[in-house]
Amino acid sequence: MSKWLEGKGKENDIVISSRIRLARNIENIKFPYLMNKDDSEEVINNIKKAIIESNTVLSRDFDFHRLNKISPLDRKVLAEKHLISHNLLETPEKSGFLLSKDEKVTIMINEEDHIRIQVLFPGLELYKSWELCSNIDDVLEENIKYAFDEKLGYLTCCPTNIGTGMRASVMLHLPCLVLTGQINKILQAVSQIGLTVRGIYGEGTDALGDLFQISNQTTLGETEEEIIDKLKNIVIQIIAKERSARDTLLTKKRTEIEDRVFRSWGILTNSRIIDSKEAMKLLSHVRMGIEMGIIKDIGLQVINKLMFSTQPATIQKYSGIDLDAKQRDIKRAKFIREKLKN
């Protein structure tokens, strides 16, 4: 489950993951939302070939999947694990993806653009992600003619992605900035310098479980390295702010914090019915307790994985039978109890 979360990245007490996504299109073919079946087949086959039949290590690393060959439930699970985007689910007949065996790289085919390369690493690893992403980009380009304009760069379906076609993002766990109420000021400041903040499931979602996704807003006029540098610089400052909020809370409100952490722990290890929103909130507080040294005998990774695996479709999948919302909440409570007992 959520294999990509395995391994330790930098600053992994606060940074859950780093992600780089590149948008690319093929010359002379209509963008996915306008393309016919023949075009979409051609694109899928070309991209599949470019990777699977390439003379590189990548050829053995990737498995190809056609979206319409995967059950609707499994598709949702993949999206909840962040391996594919929710957008890709909307056109199962036209779309597919290549997934690396370690689940760190996905090449989505016929999402909003013909190609979306995504690299995910745990912790703060933006440069590592970019390098890998760029290498895969080079391999694809050996066999595919990209839509590229000298002045405008990589051409994308939506003009908000033009230029580098790159979206770099970092997922942060900021429970203490939320508790102290500093978060809003910080988020406001961040949006004034060309970065955007979202909840963990992308555009228009709430900050579930005190998790925030910070990414670059613009893609044209800066080099990829400049974009990453700026993002990294801001992220490091936010990390410092979260750490200092933790210190303040530990010295000034130790009992209140301990109370919150242990109450959350108590509910998670005893509840019999729990919805995903409540689970995320409590898991966030337990994670905070671990980071602050209040809870000692459980690893961060257990909680990280629970945060991704207690989403509705994943719980449904885990139980193996069709569940309504209530039954799912019961299963979720049981699942969490079992994971936390070990």
Binding site: S134, D137, F148, D149, K151, L152, G153, Y154, P159, T160, I162, G163, T164, M166, G194, T218, T219, L220, G221, E222, T223, E224
Partner: peptide, 11 residues
């Protein structure tokens, strides 16, 4: 949108 109109990144 971008406050720029030319690409200077990867080619």
């Amino acid at each position: 949108i971008h406050r720029h109109d030319s690409h200077i990144g990867k080619v």
